[in-house]
Nucleic acid binder design. Sequence first.
DNA 1: GTAATAAGTTAGACTACTCTAACAAATTTA
DNA 2: TAAATTTGTTAGAGTAGTCTAACTTATTAC
Lengths: 218, 218
Amino acid sequence: MASTTEENYLKALFNLSNSKGEVNLSELAHSLQVSLPTANSMVKSLQKSGWLKYEKYKPLILTPEGEKEAALIIRKHRLTEMFLVKKMGFGWEEVHEIAEQVEHIHAPKFFQKMDEMMGYPTIDPHGSPIPDIQGRIPQVNFTPLSSCKPDQLVQLAALTNSSTEFLEFLNSRKLALGTELKILSREAYDSSVVVSYENRPHETLSEKVAERLLVRII
Amino acid sequence: MASTTEENYLKALFNLSNSKGEVNLSELAHSLQVSLPTANSMVKSLQKSGWLKYEKYKPLILTPEGEKEAALIIRKHRLTEMFLVKKMGFGWEEVHEIAEQVEHIHAPKFFQKMDEMMGYPTIDPHGSPIPDIQGRIPQVNFTPLSSCKPDQLVQLAALTNSSTEFLEFLNSRKLALGTELKILSREAYDSSVVVSYENRPHETLSEKVAERLLVRII
DNA sequence: GTAATAAGTTAGACTACTCTAACAAATTTA
DNA sequence: TAAATTTGTTAGAGTAGTCTAACTTATTAC
Ligand SMILES: [Mn+2]
Ligand SMILES: [Mn+2]
Ligand SMILES: [Mn+2]
Ligand SMILES: [Mn+2]
């Protein structure tokens, strides 16, 4: 059974390879805030346990077992986040830190009960898909708001970044998953996007914000 | 901040000293399933951190800080158990193992929300008191069923043992907290107690069971 | 009160995880 | 292609938590 530390490494490897393709040691070390030699020695030990394919100087690749293990930890993380929001009244900006701890609990029935109580949700509070019990992830395909065209009508579906600061920024603009946005224009100068939604006829979103908002076109 | 291991030692020390008075190293080692030298070295380190008073060959005594820390972990444990039963539909025999893990989560608001959702319960599913947020424990005084007299009417209020096996035994006899029992007789021969309750006019409980059942006289 | 037993301690070792310092390989830049 | 930079590796050490073996102190039984 993977230790909490190993679980965090597997999760980081999984997330990095899903967002950047090939994963190297520097990225892994940076993402876990450990030194390069620390990551190096852990990577060797993950290989020994069969979670990871590793050759000197080569990119890091999870084995199928490693991928499944990682996906199941991410499943627990996302179920927890959704449970905290839907059943315990937390804000979407408060749940990540708690889920980071709860994801390491070994108690299948605990997560099964959460799942059941919520009616088997497929996404977490930030729009990320919840892997199923086999570790399979429903693939969804959303468009960054930054690449939408004027006059399109879209609905906020997910985020590419879920930091507390970004979530608090979205709260301050009353932007939530499901919010319907009309794209009014895009500034050629700074690539900011002007949208209208609900009671807000003219809200300007910077490029940085717009590329972190994933929308479904409606 | 205490590590998970340290937290488990503090909790064990607290529980042992509350049930047996003085605590020695053997009891501690046995209760945590570690060797004597392991317990010995941990005890020295707990002393260094100020949680414990320790002198060679002397009984182990928690400092006030150690007591409070332990009580707050027990608070998280018992709140969790109650939450699992009251809000997530677990049986009282299933929750201890899960709480043993959840008690180590550092997220005050998580436990505060549980507390709030349950309406600030004062006991856990096994009748044990939940320490308050200052680590104070409401002292309750119940009588073991084994020392009740015939014809008394009593109500099951708590247990001195909450092992899965005992809880499953109680389930099989439909005994739950709150059940009202009439004491019919006590066998002089084996100290068993004959009671009636609900649809059961003659149920015999062994001495072993009777001394683990704490009742309130009504 | 001595001998036997139980409880506690010390020494030394091992695994897991982490670090810094020194160096080597690979990649990028000029 | 050679130099500069980035990335990766090895060596060596430290802390936390665990163990067994050997020994000492305290307690219990005669
Ligand atoms: Mn998260
Ligand atoms: Mn984590
Ligand atoms: Mn318990
Ligand atoms: Mn525990």
